[in-house]
Design a protein around this nucleic acid. Sequence first.
DNA 1: CAGGAAAACTGTACGGTGTACAGTACAACC
DNA 2: GGTTGTACTGTACACCGTACAGTTTTCCTG
Lengths: 224, 224
Amino acid sequence: MSDEPATQSARGTLSREKVLLAAVAMADAAGGAVPSTRKLAERLGVRAMALYHHFKNKDELLDGMVDLVFAEVELPEPGQDWREGMRLRAGSMRAALNRHPWAVGLMDSRLDAGTATLRHHDAVLGCLRRDGFSVAGAAHSISLLDSYVYGFAIQEAALPFDSAGGDDMEELAAGIMARAAEAFPYLAEIAVEHAMKPGYAYGDEFAIGLDLILDGMERRREQW
Amino acid sequence: MSDEPATQSARGTLSREKVLLAAVAMADAAGGAVPSTRKLAERLGVRAMALYHHFKNKDELLDGMVDLVFAEVELPEPGQDWREGMRLRAGSMRAALNRHPWAVGLMDSRLDAGTATLRHHDAVLGCLRRDGFSVAGAAHSISLLDSYVYGFAIQEAALPFDSAGGDDMEELAAGIMARAAEAFPYLAEIAVEHAMKPGYAYGDEFAIGLDLILDGMERRREQW
DNA sequence: CAGGAAAACTGTACGGTGTACAGTACAACC
DNA sequence: GGTTGTACTGTACACCGTACAGTTTTCCTG
């Protein structure tokens, strides 16, 4: 609706990068949904099929979008202590997945890693290897850390309320618990005594779990 | 194609449970994709719109499918040691997500937990609470364990080769590394010295990470 | 047993999706 | 200045979820 190509040609208006940036912006705005090819094209002032000159198919476009998310993640700097480096990049990765929640649902079906993704993993591996982790130890560490970060992002995305806190949740918990009554006593307990407490925010759990993992890595660093 | 309703009515052929079982079976068979309403209906000898008498919309059907996956997970038994209970249910959950890989991609958008899901979480919480974890400690533990299991399942699902091992991967790693050349030295190192070793299977990482987490929980059990 | 209401199905249709295929117009090069 | 390749457009297809309006069949009630 914005700027139609009218009858003129729109040659030169498109490029891989411009398409990806627009797609990410639209997905962010839409909350959790990747735009359709037609909507994306319209935003770019172009017809849907024009996209297929820059991407083999939609899946390749999704690959590119996910790679853009990885490109946003802060990587550990060369001289940095492994523990601080891991904490920073885990937090940065989580933040990126919170900014782009649509990426979480895409990750399980992405087969081709982009170059930003490869650079990301290479940097993380390097930080560990340079600080005394063996090859196997670094592999264990990355599998564990990535699983934790992705899984935490899934759970935050699935939360029906804002994980930063607020009292939207009290009514929700109350509703669930009313339905489930006393059939699930431990769930009721945790809802009442933990999640409904004033200062509660699920997002705070991230650092707690991450610290446990980093402690365990520290302890195993030499033996792995 | 199998048994069309011809001209007669197909009354009584449907029920929530039958629909869900068929949907899960079809999704499993298809690998990673949930069936369309039409395909699902055809398999049940019914027309697509008949499904909407048992489910408000497709999302509610997906909720039910995910709940069925949770129902398959073995729960810790009442008298069981927390550590053994957690290990068993984590392994069982991972196995269920491997059997039903389509569920992994659904989890980030499920807002309404089914009763099997609630029972699942209640049982896990109970196992921890009965063995000395505080309410907060149990909350930390569950957040961490669930994140790890879901995240690991994501990574297994995203793997372009079978995580149980095999040499499909050598060619793949070779291909990637040929493209990436020496731009990613640490990635190259881990590919050659770790992932391409004869006995390697990514799935083995699961137990290693899980043990680290359980150790950390043990250490924090009293102080949390 | 009659009749009417509720429940479980069918038929059709609408707007949306990804994308195959065949133009068409412009840019660049011999 | 013609040829060739590239980047776009137009049209069309099969498929998707589902709204809405029948059509049966069953079951409850008088």
